[in-house]
Design a protein around this nucleic acid. Structure first.
Lengths: 242, 242
DNA sequence: CCTACCAATCTGGTCAGACCAGATCAAGCA
DNA sequence: TGCTTGATCTGGTCTGACCAGATTGGTAGG
């Protein structure tokens, strides 16, 4: 799951965002016309329009009829989906954003898991145990658990019985998915992650809200720190221009 | 602000969502083909494709090449933007959703405003005072403060210096915007809202985290209760089929 | 009667070109 | 200089076409 983009439309969305970033366009700036973009990107105008419809829906661009296409927000000020898109596309990120994401995750997930302690059903617990097992198996097999990690965290949040919290946390999880894909290449880190997950399930099973709150803070902050360390030693962010 | 939809594309998005709702389509169900939808809606296939691109980006639909269009999620399980869309379109809502939104808002906004107490700058404070004044003036003039209310709350959250929290709360606020538009027709409620806003600013100014937390809980819960009461006395939800 | 295979059909993906009407802007007139 | 006006540009929408893979129904073979 979690790969929203498909073929030419996504290709054009990517190209457009890269164009914006490359040309340092700011809020209110005007983009080239649809016709020029289609020529520049080597796709039909209809494809450009589909991409722009998506960017419009994300409040990144604004198409003023008979006038032009304008940047409504810097990409980083658009909706959360825009940030997920940016992450999926491997575009550069403002470091402040990653710090803010970490903080927001701790707030939302922390409280969500406390609610999960209160409200979890036996079915929720069974599902978590199942996910835990497949998570362990995946790591054992040497796979990259980035996606499974997202699923696991969202399943825990779902035990709060609040679907809106799940939707709220989804983009926050997906945004960090790419970063963690590198991060999880370390077997040591995978093992530690698995241990944390076990602790999470145990705490939710015991309805131990205090333990869960502490776990969330430690788990998310540690992960963020590790990713940051990786980024620094790995040099510049992955702006991989296609 | 906060009116994302424009012309034919939005029209088709709306029609499509209405189709899904009317036909009680569930996750995994298949929609009619693009060609059939275009005929049914009386628009060109290209317009249908733009609308589908948007719905795809919102993870509501999934277009499987050469196969068909499938419902990835019930509308209510899509991204938060999808819910905002649904609210803007005036489509019916599951009551559980409104309860979940309230809870999520209390969690996120409560913590965000505590952070705002710690981190607010003088500029933040000045901006809040400014918004407060125009809010008061708007109510005095008999205008509907629904949009101004959204702006005010987001400005408070922005004082937390965490842009991701702002982005997270934005859809939660926008979603309830419609409900509150009716709610704010009562002068009494407007006055109470203004008093609350004053209290918010005072608490943030005094960096009183405890007061802010209490205020958020009371403010949001009261508003939700009032809206619920309105909905019950007002009869069925506004499913206004165009 | 059931299975296996194949061709007509359907589907999304993409492209090309056309028309409209309002916005824009520069040239030309007053 | 200032204002009008018309050529040009822009997004919005439609029509129609081709491609290649997915689907499916019917037929031939077991």
């Amino acid at each position: 799951m979690a790969m929203p983009l498909a073929s030419e439309t996504s290709h054009t969305v990517r190209k457009t965002l890269e164009f914006v970033q490359h040309h340092r366009l700011a809020k209110g700036d005007r983009l080239p016309s649809e016709r020029e973009l289609s020529e520049r990107f080597g796709v039909a105008r209809s494809s450009v329009r589909e991409a722009l419809a998506v960017l419009d829906a994300m409040r990144i661009t604004e198409r003023k009829p008979k006038s032009g296409i304008f940047l409504r927000n810097a990409v980083e000020d658009g909706g959360l989906d825009a940030l997920v898109l940016q992450a999926d596309l491997g575009l550069a990120f403002d470091p402040q954003v990653t710090r803010d994401v970490t903080e927001a995750r701790i707030i939302c997930e922390g409280r969500a898991l406390q609610l999960a302690c209160q409200r979890r059903s036996d079915a929720d617990l069974a599902k978590l145990h199942g996910l835990l097992d497949s998570y362990a198996a995946l790591i054992e097999a040497g796979g990259n658990p980035a996606d499974a990690d997202v699923d696991f965290h969202l399943a825990m949040v779902a035990a709060s019985q609040n679907r809106i919290l799940v939707r709220t946390l989804t983009p926050l999880m997906l945004m960090s998915r790419r970063w963690r894909q590198r991060y999880f290449q370390s077997a040591e880190i995978c093992r530690r992650s698995l241990d944390d997950h076990r602790a999470f399930v145990a705490a939710i099973e015991a309805r131990d809200e205090a333990a869960v709150a502490t776990l969330v803070r430690r788990h998310v902050q540690t992960a963020a720190a590790d990713v940051r360390a990786l980024a620094e030693q790995g040099g510049a962010p992955p702006t991989e221009t296609a």
